[in-house]
Amino acid sequence: MSLRKHDFRENGDKIDYILTIADNSLILGQRMGELTGHGPTLEVDIACTNIALDLFGQVRSYFQYAAQLAEKSCTEDDLAFLRTEREYKNVLLVEQPNTNFAYVIAKQFLFDHYHFLFLNELQNSNDATLSAIAKKSIKEVSYHKRFSSDWVLRLGDGTSVSKEKIQKAINDLWPFTQELFEPNEPEEKAIDLGYGVDIAKLQEEYKQAVEKVLIEATLEELPVLEFYQRGGKKGIHSEHMGYLLSDMQYMQRTYPGMKW
């Protein structure tokens, strides 16, 4: 089963826009959830699970709204679990694996700074529901940003080992950030119609905010790259995504149509 666009008809663009937003939280939350039980200390484990819970909470708000907009009856779980890989709109950044704690933090950090700026603008959406979700979520994300930035400082300005690891993680993940600011089709329409965020405008502020933390963390300044990785927003994902979805969708795919 797959939810194709024609299921949505009238609100199709808005639903696609909501998915573009929500899939980031869904996939990042899924990755964060992998860490539960395996964190470097109990305290950090608990903190990271809180982030995952915040993200899934946001996902449920977005998906419930999208499901409501869909003409054909569908649920938050249909949207979360029953799309094909090509139908997920999250950026490549959030699906990258938790190679080690430095990658967990770097991924979170690079996304949180974007997420914060994004939600800040989404509060002004002319869609009252999206604006309300943004108002609630931004408090959570403000804390995520603080948590991940603090950890970038600790790892960057900690030991030589930690510095090397977080630097490598930032270097490896930075090429995935450009995509955050390149609107896909639903985003372009959303901007035109006043319910979406003009993300391209956030890029400069994003770079400054990220770089400020990196410099304080005694890490290298951000490189200007010739080439960036993109595709997630158009549903063209990395090879990691298939495995992530196999896990996430396992129950719904193995036992179709059941209630849990």
Binding site: T41, D150, R154
Partner: peptide
């Protein structure tokens, strides 16, 4: 709880 410094202790306290 355990924390490396005061800021972390506050954050951990919030989370725990």
């Amino acid at each position: 709880l355990h924390a490396a410094d005061a800021e972390m202790a506050l954050e951990n306290a919030r989370d725990v």
